[in-house]
Design a binder for these strands. Sequence first.
DNA 1: TGGAAAACATTCCATTCGGCATGTAAGTTT
DNA 2: AAACTTACATGCCGAATGGAATGTTTTCCA
Lengths: 216, 216
Amino acid sequence: MTATQPTQPDALAGTRERGHRTQAERRERTRTALLDATIDCLTELGYARTSVQEICVRAGVSKGAQQHHFTTKAELMAAAVEHLTNRIQAEIVAAAGDLPDAPDLVEHGIDLIWQGFAGTLSAAVMELWVAARTDTELAAAIKPVDKALGRSTLRLFHSLAPEMPQHTLETLYWLTVNLIRGLALDAQIGGDATRRNQLLTEWKRIALGVYRGDVG
Amino acid sequence: MTATQPTQPDALAGTRERGHRTQAERRERTRTALLDATIDCLTELGYARTSVQEICVRAGVSKGAQQHHFTTKAELMAAAVEHLTNRIQAEIVAAAGDLPDAPDLVEHGIDLIWQGFAGTLSAAVMELWVAARTDTELAAAIKPVDKALGRSTLRLFHSLAPEMPQHTLETLYWLTVNLIRGLALDAQIGGDATRRNQLLTEWKRIALGVYRGDVG
DNA sequence: TGGAAAACATTCCATTCGGCATGTAAGTTT
DNA sequence: AAACTTACATGCCGAATGGAATGTTTTCCA
């Protein structure tokens, strides 16, 4: 029997005998290995100390393979941005599974944003963001992707609380996102966790007040 | 006549004839030149691309002189943190000269925090902060200095609005600082300035409401 | 005033970086 | 199964880095 038939979609894809993989499979495999390793390096070593060599080692991939997929380091980083954003988005969507209705949505929504924008993955985002400030190429790669993440998350909230006024929702959302990014920075260098929680609690109370129309 | 008398404090310090400077003068001069150049590099090149060589060039100082003052690069960065914080603090104090009384203080205070924590100098702080996340030595140098800046600024506000309840002031202050740090991040990679201004305006309104006791 | 010490300058080195060139193995097409 | 394309591996190079070693100038102090 001929071992495998060439192009046709194979139901056993990914379960084939060892040592025989589709090109697409191989490609995808090492590609994500590289991107995941990149994110690993960013979170663990920071942007400054992240070298392509280290990435290759962690990905279990040769230097040549890396260059085959991403010619330059900048290209790799740009791809990592998108990969990273996708993972964060998936994280958020998963966590948003069972959110209550408004007004409890305000409180739990803030928690959700915290999880998405201050978690481990967001540390990597910070690294890339800060690096992008002085790297126009990286900035160009980040801007649209990041904007898309922000907007899609906002849409998510909008669908969860359709009765909430558009303007109120947007204001609270963006204020929360930026506040939490600031708090995330504080958390990353070991600020006082207790005070952060207090601030978050206060903000929830205030946001609820805004939602109810006490101010604004 | 003997050219100069040795140790005694000299009224002409800094204005002596060319080529004859006190050791303390020389020392201070190149030290701050190095530190200023470091901050320049951080704001302009970012942490990753900041090399001691470039710092030396910008400071107009030889590599040997740099090593004489700061044995290692980490040492230089640590010193730069304090230098940077001092400059920011001076900036804030200067800008706080003529602040109105509460409740206008709320609005203008937020502007003041924006100037201090989102200005050019704060970009350098961001670089160091993010770098410190994966550099314990740098983190150890930053933490106390940064905490001191935060607290001293808070004290400044407290002295400006003594009739404002302690708890309200602190909450609004720290919420504002963290919000603005998030917004500063957004600004640094070229986010939408118009939306940032809108958010800041909204936040002022909300903060004023909090101060008046509408919420909380 | 002369020697010690501090400040500053120059040169060199081991290491590491990103990227290129070239070679080999695996998968695909006809 | 032969020709071909894609994926991966290895070795190397010039550039740049941080730091050490050593030499020179300036200030200080007895």
